[in-house]
Write a protein that binds this DNA or RNA. Structure first.
Lengths: 182, 182
DNA sequence: TTCATATGAGACGTTTTTGTCTCACCGGGG
DNA sequence: CCCCGGTGAGACAAAAACGTCTCATATGAA
């Protein structure tokens, strides 16, 4: 009988990341509940987006923790991170696009995530694993972009779901060029 | 005195690709014109988006033509393409995100672009330049995602504008991993 | 200068979306 | 059995955005 708040947020993220102009009514129907009930759980659109952000940042941060970014090689850590981020790919792409929405103040939690991911790439550079000519900031952005793109591509059937991690990891690490095996 | 339609479309794309919920008034101010003038040039929001799509597809198609995708190595062609696409990066990222909220029919012009880019990657594979384990469809999506991410990173100052082409090309072709020179 | 044209600002009515409310209903616990 | 908390549907007003209009102004050409 009672609404599953988690399931509502998930449905909202899935819809809003694809169509950010969706009305509250559309969000409610996508979550399979009435508009009145949606308003009972989230004061308004603003509150819904905030809850989405909070939850997204929370999940990504958990993925960062679970990936143990400081253990082993940076490449291994990156593979663990991408694997751990997959379930939250929808929320991540929502965060990436929506993060630009708030002019002025940048979400504090988001910049914290940013810093941790950048640190991973910097560690890889310092270990001699990653190239120096691609900045950690750019690699971080590229990671977000690729995760978002791949999530969309999977959703649209252009990429097989089981290849999600592989496609991202291989492109991000090795690139498209065929190179001599080392 | 007269409004530069091109500049308006560019500003609109830059804003709408980041904030698709932007008001017509916000779009107008982003373009540095009044709301009334915006309505004089584009009948409404729908017409504006249509014009944005049309112009975006037109510019990307022109870039594809200019890049001579069938000449020389696929890598050279890809470099030419990325260089030629840079001025239209804002429009491209708008197209990519807008195309995600497909409601029914997919834009015909867009799928034509898609096919041409995919063909380039397929040619690279057949020439032995590109890896076979990364599908042309995924490489195409990844290219779009990286262009959009980089355009956005440049706009926010996280990546230097002069590095736009280099960052995309190098990551897409060679990846982040430091590898033995071939 | 004079005139035609295009613009910005803003007023306005309309439409869409939002947020709140009421009410009937449904299902589990007393 | 009867409550009772949570829900869906819909009504309703307020708010926001849209689209159109007028008017004063500025720019460039004749």
């Amino acid at each position: 009988m009672s609404v599953d708040r988690d399931q509502v947020l998930r449905a909202a993220a899935a819809l809003l990341s694809r169509k950010s102009t969706a009305t509250m009514d559309e969000v409610a129907r996508a979550a399979g509940i009435g508009r009145a009930t949606l308003h009972r759980h989230f004061a308004g659109r603003e509150a819904l987006v905030r809850a989405l952000e909070e939850r997204g940042i929370q999940e990504i941060e958990a993925a960062l923790d679970a990936a143990r970014l400081d253990d082993g090689t940076a490449e291994e850590a990156l593979r663990r991170l991408i694997a751990g981020v997959e379930p939250a790919a929808g929320l991540l792409s929502f965060l990436v696009t929506e993060n630009q929405l708030f002019e002025g103040e940048v979400n504090e939690g988001w910049s914290r995530l940013d810093a941790r991911v950048s640190a991973l790439f910097r560690r890889g550079q310092e270990r001699g694993e990653f190239r120096f000519d691609l900045t950690p900031a750019w690699l971080t952005e590229a990671l977000y972009g690729l995760v978002g793109s791949c999530a969309w591509a999977v959703q649209d059937g252009r990429v097989a779901g089981k290849d999600f991690q592989y496609m991202i990891v291989e492109l991000l690490l090795g690139g498209a060029r065929r190179s001599v095996e080392k």
